[in-house]
Amino acid sequence: MGVLIVCFFTNISLGSVSIPFKTIFESLIGTTDNYIILHYRLPKAITAILVGSGLGVSGLLMQTLFRNPLAGPFVLGISSGASLGVALVIMGTGFFGGAIASVLISKWSIVIAASLGSFLVLLAVLIVSSKVRDTMAILIIGLMFGSITAAVVSVLSYFSSAEQLQQYIFWGFGSLGNLSWHELLIFFIIYAIGVLLSILSLKALNTLLLGENYARSLGMNIRQSRLIIILATSALAGTITAFAGPIAFIGLAVPHLTRQVFNSSNHKILLPAVLLVGAIIMLICDSIAQLPTSDFTLPINAITSLIGAPVVIWLLVRKRKMVF
């Protein structure tokens, strides 16, 4: 928790304009009105916390549900579903003519399209996965859905204008900024619903550690629990992808990092830990992405992988054993 607070303040204090700590503190408690802090850096830091913790939780839910350490929102096609939804809204509007386009491409239509896309793809993966027993097959099916959506996106891109393409590509870089307080509130509400559903699933998640047959013999309603877990994941991953773009890697890596650090599979420990670790990592990645003291901001999507992947590799090599 202490680490989180330190990261939070560090994140706010870093940026192209250097602002002394005193000003930051004063604007946070409301005595000074610093525009950059209140309308740019603070929303961005909060977004980073929501994005990191939310993606971590959705990755944890998927890994437990599919009993596969390779699972995550990306692998199972949730994010590619969201991408397809967004691509349809940004680029597909060309087909309907300019008048509707300007109405459609609001922040909200992107959010709704991304959520819907991710939910539909996850549902499709789930329906197919109920027919196959092999978990590896489910992952491959998820990758296939990813390929299909990628293909549809390329077809759309082919017919799109340069501005639309650019808009879509910039969305794909991922961005934690640009969220107004109003948007942040909506984001937080859906995030809270996702986390609440995850908390409701704690018992089911722990039971699933034994495998589905044992879970059923313990009186667990598999269908219902599975649906709640999937709703939680799509609410979290879908909204995050909608507001911040397809942030790579966090969903897969944070649960692994957390399991290694806390050495537990109990979700009552893992869930809060993943929330915390996810938030911290995202804040660190964002601080690096801003390239302190320079005017550039790197795409957050590149930074999460550049920083995160070596850390996971280092942990696995050092411990020599994967905890799952």
Binding site: N206, L210, G211, N213, V323
Partner: peptide, 20 residues
């Protein structure tokens, strides 16, 4: 069949029997 997660301690495993 073996259980999905072998990272549970024996006590945690036995405790899961109380889930109902």
């Amino acid at each position: 069949e073996s259980i999905a997660s072998k990272n549970l301690t024996v006590y945690e495993l036995v405790a899961l029997g109380r889930q109902p």
